[in-house]
Computed example of a mutant assay.
Amino acid sequence: MRNVAPMARRVPLHPMPLTVPTRWVKNIIAVFLLPWCAILTQTFFTAFARATIHQHLWAGAEFWFFSLGVVLWLIAFVGLPRPVILYVFGHEVTHVLWVWLMGGRVSKFRVSGDGGHIITNRTNFLIALAPYFFPLYSLLAILVYGIASLFVNVAPYGQLLYAILGITWAFHLTFTCWMIPKNQTDLSDHGTFFSLVFIYLMNLVLLSGLLVIASPQITFASFGEDVVQNLRSFSQWISALLNAYTRGHQAPVQ
């Protein structure tokens, strides 16, 4: 029997650098994003309630046409065959747009009723998660309306625009909520927890912008002031909790 001498391990001259999994970093970032989610949520619903009750946002035609669009889509989503291929097409087109925005190239684009995918030379969490916070069809409706306004008087069709925005925004929201539980690799590849927090925050940012645009009584400046005020209140609440915790764990003086 031959004796095989064990191979001597080479000890590296320089120690290997400590690496932290990217997913851990993203989860930590998501934890720090949670307070911003809470602050923006409070600001949005406070501004919406104030505009609706005290400033009579509900009395405006824009509010009712937008709400009508939402209701019509919800009825269609629940009671009619769902246009999955239309959603998949918009989903993959959104990926493509964000790849181009990031300076990448797309070499393959596939869409079917069973799903779709693209092949690209660039990817990151913004490209992967964009379809879940970027309402493509709503923005397309606004773009068409804006371009048409350069050539014709589109003011009589403003209410129709709000109805279309209601339909397309509800389309985006319902399909997003419907698809998220279906083991989407877009989410799992970048950490499901981080992805869900980021998607929620970005959708809330866009919805807040839509509220400001739709309500003459709310401006971006006033909404920003509300955010700052709620941030200050949140900071004071955290400070009070820390002070209470510190006092509760101080060693008694003999």
Score class of each variant (00 low, 15 high):
W237I: 08
T120W: 06
F151C: 00
G191R: 01
F89V: 01
W98E: 01
F171A: 07
I75Q: 11
C177S: 13
Y132A: 12
H95A: 03
G115D: 06
L40Y: 05
S222Q: 12
S67L: 14
V205D: 03
N183H: 14
I28Q: 09
A148K: 02
L165A: 11
A47E: 08
V11W: 15
I164S: 04
A141E: 02
Y200S: 07
N27Y: 07
S239L: 09
Y87H: 12
W169E: 07
W24V: 01
F109W: 06
M1W: 00
R2E: 14
F134N: 01
A251M: 14
N230I: 03
S107Y: 15
L126P: 00
Q217A: 15
L126A: 15
V25H: 01
L72N: 06
H117L: 05
R2C: 04
R105M: 08
P12L: 01
V106W: 08
S67C: 13
Q42H: 04
L74I: 12
I164F: 14
L241S: 00
T19C: 06
R9L: 15
L173S: 13
A148S: 12
F220I: 10
L201W: 13
Q184P: 03
Q184L: 05
W73C: 03
M1H: 10
H91S: 03
F220K: 00
I127G: 01
R9G: 05
S149I: 02
N203S: 11
V144E: 05
V205H: 09
L18V: 15
S215C: 13
R10T: 15
S112R: 08
D226C: 02
R2P: 15
V25D: 00
F194R: 02
L129S: 03
Y200K: 01
Q229H: 13
I164V: 14
L241E: 00
L139P: 01
S208L: 03
L241M: 09
A240C: 08
L207V: 10
A30H: 09
W237F: 15
L187I: 06
G90F: 05
P216H: 07
A240F: 12
Q42C: 09
D186E: 09
R2D: 13
F220Q: 01
H95C: 05
I180A: 09
F45T: 02
V88D: 05
T185P: 10
L210G: 14
R232C: 07
V31G: 08
L74R: 06
F66K: 03
F134C: 06
H91D: 02
I118A: 01
Q159A: 11
H95Q: 06
V152M: 14
L206M: 11
L160C: 04
H91F: 04
